[in-house]
Amino acid sequence: MEVSEREILVVEKNPMLPQIFQIRSRKQETSDTFTLELEPVEAGVEFIFKPGQFNMLYVFGVGEVPISISGDPEKVSRVTHTTRMVGTVTKAMGKLKKGDLIGVRGPFGSSWPVDKCSGCDVVIVAGGIGLAPLRPAIYYILRRRENYNKAILLYGARTPDDILYKHEIEKWKSRFDFEVYVTVDRGTSGWKGNVGVVTTLIPRAPFDPQNTIAFVCGPEIMMRFTALELIKRGVSENNIFISMERNMKCGIGLCGHCQFGPVFVCKDGPVFSYSQVKNLIFKREI
């Protein structure tokens, strides 16, 4: 190691102190998933973020968790989060009501490269709650639809009851310029759609692999197999992007928890190109 004279360190705003936001609406999406719309308590504050970024959300006295932003990046007066109740903090968050306050730090992390390739086919592959961090990218793309060739959403949920944003998916389906395919792992009576994991939709999805950019989010195992399926079709590894999940305590690369080999998922990710992480993602317990 080379020892050099230390540089002068500058004190900046404390990134560990949350800003206070108020819940403007709460919507139950599925039995265990809800969406909160938050508004800064301080008047006139805009919340600007890029699709794919996340916030650290703080429930008073309970704790803080990283939650991706699921709303429209162009609606800067509010910020939207879709959360599944799986742990202490998210369960407490699920009990909050309209008007309650919540702490917000962010936005943090990398984003879906929505402008990387104009004129390309865009393939969005989502598994379960993985649709939430992709929704800002969908809003962004549909608003600039003319910049892309085909736009395709492949979405897999566990059961028909677990499908997120049902009403919105119907609206998307009704557009002529957005192809939406939904599948469920297990059908129920009355389900007339596809049954099977989301990767089964990839071989028959109508996109041009040579000219495609893909955004993938879901459980890690689903992202691994989705990437392999896309590569099998001929999509370049550099054009496949995934969003990783790891334990995070700070969101800003100072706590060490989210290390994934040489990268910090919180600040180098969560969105990575497949080529960036392919050497590690198939190894166990990295």
Binding site: M1, E7, L9, V10, V11, N14, I252, L254, K267
Partner: peptide, 20 residues
């Protein structure tokens, strides 16, 4: 100490408690 300077004070986000 110089290494921790870089960690807590050399990146995009810094720890004001350390720096002070």
């Amino acid at each position: 100490i110089l290494i921790q300077d870089k960690i807590f004070g050399g990146g995009q986000y810094t720890d004001p408690n350390y720096i002070k």
